[in-house]
Structure formats: structure tokens, C-alpha cells
Write a protein that binds this DNA or RNA. Sequence first.
DNA 1: CTGGCTGCTGTTATACTGTAGCGTTATCGC
DNA 2: GCGATAACGCTACAGTATAACAGCAGCCAG
Lengths: 152, 152
Amino acid sequence: MGTPAAFGPLERADALCVRRGVRLTPQRRRVLAILCSASRPLGAYEILEAMRDGSRPLAPPTVYRALDFLLEQGLVHKLESLHAFIGCRHPDHPHSGQFLICRTCGLVTELEDEAICESLRSAADETGFRPERRVVEVLGVCACCVGKGVEG
Amino acid sequence: MGTPAAFGPLERADALCVRRGVRLTPQRRRVLAILCSASRPLGAYEILEAMRDGSRPLAPPTVYRALDFLLEQGLVHKLESLHAFIGCRHPDHPHSGQFLICRTCGLVTELEDEAICESLRSAADETGFRPERRVVEVLGVCACCVGKGVEG
DNA sequence: CTGGCTGCTGTTATACTGTAGCGTTATCGC
DNA sequence: GCGATAACGCTACAGTATAACAGCAGCCAG
Ligand SMILES: [Zn+2]
Ligand SMILES: [Zn+2]
Ligand SMILES: [Zn+2]
Ligand SMILES: [Zn+2]
């Protein structure tokens, strides 16, 4: 059929950026690819390391600038408590997700829980606070690691 | 009468540490005092600067060690999104609060909202995740700044 | 075509945040 | 006192992030 069986996150990012009239340049796309193929959040300097193909020694601003763009476009999230970045699992609409972060295996689960959003919204409303960005990160041990008794 | 009219956060911290059998040493108390008297969150190096009375040039580990202790005892909180620290407003029982952070005036409001806690707990429960530490920080513009039209 | 403008990239240098390691000093139980 | 432990001071360094400037490509008005 005309539509491929599955679009990966990169193809969806391409389409999204076209629709928004912004440029997902090769460098930016590369950073996004690295983050999406990683099984855990990566620090900026880990991304930098992963971008060295062959010989060229890239500098920090390169990756930080790409990350700034990807964050603005909601294609990746920053995990403040880890100083690390992760590809967004549903970037089609802008959002600031909630994250469950396993300290044992490094697994990160992104949520978009309406009850959490609503409770934050109503708490802010009560004080007249106007929210712009929400950071919600729960650190602990994931179900899998609890089951294995790895929890320490 | 026997009881002073008002106990400040320092006196309450003293009592708390005695009860717990831990030592609120002069260095630690000093850091706590600086944080409690500040009108906004302070970075570790700002605290360091504030601790230089007269001549002695203190080194970073001094303040980081004091902060580690105060964090363990729940007397201060770390704001991950600002890399800064703030004194807790109700340290009597251990908790990880929620914070409304104004990007305009720097004001930080600490909440302990049961609806937020409950929604986080139930989201974690659904996936079998065992929470240990919660980071909830909402960045935006406080009511006061919105009223003044300073919001940018 | 030309020249200016804008946005992206490369590079150097540096600022800011946090820790390892080690020796000394204070504190506490005995 | 005396040994064990906790706290402190210090040097050095690791990790995270940004400022500032230069080059280059594309786009568009003139
Ligand atoms: Zn997301
Ligand atoms: Zn796990
Ligand atoms: Zn608190
Ligand atoms: Zn404000």
C-alpha cells in the first residue's frame, strides 16, 4: 500500500518540522537519531562522543545548539535530575511529560498523565501562578528491577 | 512566659536535630541560616561567597558537605532546574515538596499538595514503579509579576 | 549579478557546578 | 587518657554549559 508499515520517530520529526516551517538539519537530525536509538538518557557529552564518526572532533556548542532546537520543538526532553536528554515518544503535540526514572537499570518511562497535569494546574491556579514549564521526575526502582530484587 | 513568642527555622532545626541525634554543627547551621535568610534560592557558590566573613577563603566541599547533611535531614531542598538550594518551610516531617518558581522575580513557593502526591503515587503504582524521590518544579510567572505585567 | 541579511556551523576559550582523595582536627564513648 | 568516628580544610580535578567570534550557505532586494 502507499503508506509504509511504520514511521519511525525520525520520519515523524521530518514531517513535523516541514509542517512547522523549521529546519531539521543533518546535525540536528543526527542528535535526534542518537537519542532515539539509545536505550537510556544520554548526557550532552555522551552525544558528542557518539557523533564523532571517524576523525572529526566536535565541540560542545554543536550538540548543545542542536539540543536547544530539539527541545524547542518538543522532539526531546531534558531530565533535570540526571543532566541528560531523551527522545520524546509522542512529539506530535507539544507537552512537558512526566518521567519515572529507575536508578538501577536506567530505564525511563515517559507519562502524560492527565491527573498529574490537572493537579499541578489547579495548585498553580490557587496561587495565581502562571505555569510555563513543568518538571516532573520521579526517581526510584522500576517494576522489573523490583521483581528481580535488584533494588539494593 | 517560658516559651518565646516565635521560634525561627534555625531554632526548630536545632530541636529537630537534637531529637534525631544528629549534629547541626556551626558550619551546617551557618549554611542553613544563609539559605533561610535569602529571599530566593542560592547556588552552592553563592552560599560559599556568603560564608566568607572577613578573611577566610572556603573551598567548595565545605558547603557541599553541609548541603548534603541538610538535604538528608530535610532542612533544605534542591531545585534541580535551577541548580540551587532553598530552605524548607516546614521541615518537621520529611517530604519532597513541589515548587512554583517565578522566572521573573525569583520567588519560589513550596507546596505540599496532597492531590499532586496522590496523582504521582497512583501513576507510579500503575506501572509497578517504586518511587523514592520526587522532583516537581513548575516554572513560570508568579501572581505578583503577572499583575505587574512584568511577564515579558 | 551583487551585496546585504539571516540562520546554521565550527572553534576557542572560559564559566559554572560538583567530587575524589587525603590529611588534620574535633567529638564521643569507654 | 585513648581509640574510633565524624566533621573539616584543602588541593586538585571532573563534568556541565555558555560566550564570543569567524566562516559559510541560502535567500532576496536592488
Ligand atoms: Zn514527550
Ligand atoms: Zn529498573
Ligand atoms: Zn519542604
Ligand atoms: Zn514573580
